[in-house]
Design a binder for these strands. Structure first.
Length: 541
RNA sequence: GCCCCGAUAGCUCAAUUGGAUAGAGCAACGCUCUUCUAAAGCGUAGGCUACAGGUUCGAUUCCUGUUCGGGGUACCA
């Protein structure tokens, strides 16, 4: 609705021979300002050197008979143009929604375009924690939003199965294995102390028996990383998340991609040797410090495979690449980007999303999370506690720029403080009304006089319903699913308010039929939104 | 020191990316079920948007400082 108006105004400006400035068409906060409002005139004032009010008058006059189902246009100081639509404008959407169902207002803007979304990518050193959960749900929901827009989405997990952390993991399992064989427990400095390490050691013993195999660390690493991979994959699956591609860091070594990057950078003179290490001249590309790519031990730092991996991403030809990282990664991306540019690769289609951390509180006390020390709460535990719907909704209901407070005590309550129940309750109510109507003998409400729907609560509800596409567009450009949760909450509120004032099924059959169509239509929109969030739509509660 | 995020009602957060009188939920206090689900609705109260400047018709939003939180600043990932 807003986008259509924007175009109409642009046409109008062209007609008047004025250059189109940056302006907005938006939904005003106050009902007295109409259903849509624009600041065009204000933005034109300087260019035309005229009073904004006069400009607004001119535009309003020009637009008046070009827009269908318009009640009136108002020009208000200091120069806003407010649009008031007639009830008919809103009523006509009902048959459209009921006909198109899940396809209602689909933009199709991503048709034929490929997107890769990389998310989670946690080291396979332990079960996913509550911290990882935020990224998991964010990534999957963003993917779902893009899929709604018809993008072809590849969900990818970069699997760090090489490097120092994996060696620590192998050593930790080895230590537990030896303990099982009766030796004294000796977890290495910086090793992993979680219970799950014991389970893995037991699994190893079951498969390999009692070996004298302390030299064969690789065997332990491989076994452990695979075991943890299974754990992580299953956790995500329980949350309704499945990655299309697990990209192994190891493969970058096997296929020689690491070497290629080093060679390519050296060839262009972007690296140098110092203190036995290979350095990347990151400062040449505006980064604050030069970075080590290969340590004096001959082992690469994590940056090198990161660079190689991103080089592969670009080569794979996606139209859009989205990286989702925790805020602790903010320092590393500029280096990767610099290196890619150093290899003359285009990085303009990469979007890096950084989300802030999850703070876990329990009875008001902060709980410190660490995989290594094993004093974390796992994502599995959280799901068991509050259910997947609540987990999915809570993780994205806040902007990713702000810290997320997860109060465990509150989450366990499953009480009325929970917005998820508010939305699901609205959906269940809608279903119940439709069921009730047939019980009351209304066989069909296909033929109805929709002009009967003109009370303020109903117009407000309809107005909110058709806002859906505007919201989905904001989600697409901002990549912030939070806008969708906020919207659905408003939609449910508009419905609950309507419900409390107007009874749907009454003695007045004609009116009942019209309102039944309305309820059916809201239900479709609400379900569309909840489906995108992968939150269930119960018919009864 | 430098870099990234945040600071809005007692608490948790919004504010359509610069718009008009800053809004919700929870907590507090009142109402509303003989009705399609009260997991709901209505009302009251709650604000110098951390602080000080600047930019312009207009700032919670952009810029510059300051204060306080979180994260980073490795030849750890």
């Amino acid at each position: 609705m807003l986008q259509a108006l924007q175009k109409e105004i642009q046409n109008c400006l062209a007609q008047l021979g004025w250059e189109s400035p940056q302006f907005v068409v938006e939904r005003p906060r106050k009902n007295t300002f109409g259903h849509a409002s624009s600041n065009v005139a204000l933005t034109l004032a300087k260019q035309l050197k005229r009073r904004p009010l006069d400009i607004a008058q001119d535009i309003a006059k020009e637009l008046e008979d070009k827009i269908n189902d318009l009640d009136k246009i108002e020009v208000v100081a200091p120069g806003f143009i407010n649009f008031f639509f007639s009830p008919l404008y809103f009523q006509t959407f009902i048959p459209k929604i009921r006909k198109e169902k899940a396809a209602f207002q689909k933009s199709g803007i991503g048709k034929g375009k490929t997107v890769q979304v990389e998310f989670v990518s946690a080291n396979p050193t332990g079960p996913l924690t509550i911290g990882h959960g935020r990224q998991a749900v964010l990534g999957d929901t963003i993917s779902r939003i893009l899929e709604w827009h018809d993008y072809d989405v590849t969900r990818e997990y970069y699997f760090n199965d090489a490097g120092r952390q994996m060696r620590m993991l192998g050593l930790s399992v080895l230590a537990r294995y030896k303990e099982l064989l009766g030796e004294e427990l000796n977890i290495p400095e910086g090793g992993y102390e979680g219970e799950y390490i014991i389970d893995i050691a037991q699994g190893f013993r079951k498969e390999h028996g009692d070996l004298k195999c302390e030299d064969d660390l690789e065997l332990f690493i491989e076994f452990a990383s695979h075991a943890i991979f299974i754990i992580i994959r299953d956790t995500l699956k329980r949350l309704g998340i499945e990655h299309d591609v697990y990209y192994n860091e190891k493969d970058l070594y096997k296929t020689g991609k690491i070497k290629e990057v080093l060679e390519q950078l050296a060839e262009k003179g972007h690296t140098y040797e110092e203190d036995g290490a290979t350095w990347f001249k990151a400062t040449k590309f505006g980064t604050e410090k030069d970075r080590v790519l290969v340590k004096d031990t001959g082992e690469p730092t994590y940056r090198l495979p990161d660079i190689a991996y991103h080089r592969e991403k670009i080569k794979r030809g996606f139209d859009l690449i989205i990286d989702i990282f925790g805020s602790d990664h903010h320092a590393t991306y500029p280096d990767v980007k610099s290196a890619l540019e150093a290899m003359d690769l285009d990085t303009s289609h990469i979007r890096v999303l950084l989300h802030q951390f999850v703070t876990l509180t329990r009875d008001g006390e902060k709980v410190k999370m660490s995989t290594r020390k094993a004093n974390f709460v796992t994502l599995d535990e959280l799901m068991a506690l509050v259910g997947t719907d609540v987990v999915r909704y809570f993780y994205i209901m806040r902007s990713m720029d702000s810290h997320l407070n997860f109060d465990l005590a509150l989450a366990q309550k499953q009480s009325d403080e929970n917005p998820v129940f508010y939305l699901q309750y609205a959906h269940a109510r809608m279903c119940n009304i439709l069921i009730h109507s047939s019980e009351k003998g209304i066989e069909s409400y296909e033929k109805a006089d929709l002009t009967l729907l003109n009370e303020p609560e109903i117009i407000k509800l309809l107005e909110t319903m058709i806002e859906f596409s505007d919201i989905m567009d904001i989600c697409r450009t901002s990549l912030e699913p939070m806008h969708l949760t906020n919207y659905l909450y408003r939609l449910a509120t508009a419905f609950h308010k309507f419900y409390s004032v107007h009874r749907v099924v009454t003695e007045n059959i004609e009116l009942s039929k019209a309102r039944l169509q309305l309820v059916d239509a809201v239900k479709i929109i609400l379900a569309n939104g909840l489906n995108i969030l992968a939150v269930k739509t119960p018919e009864r509660m």
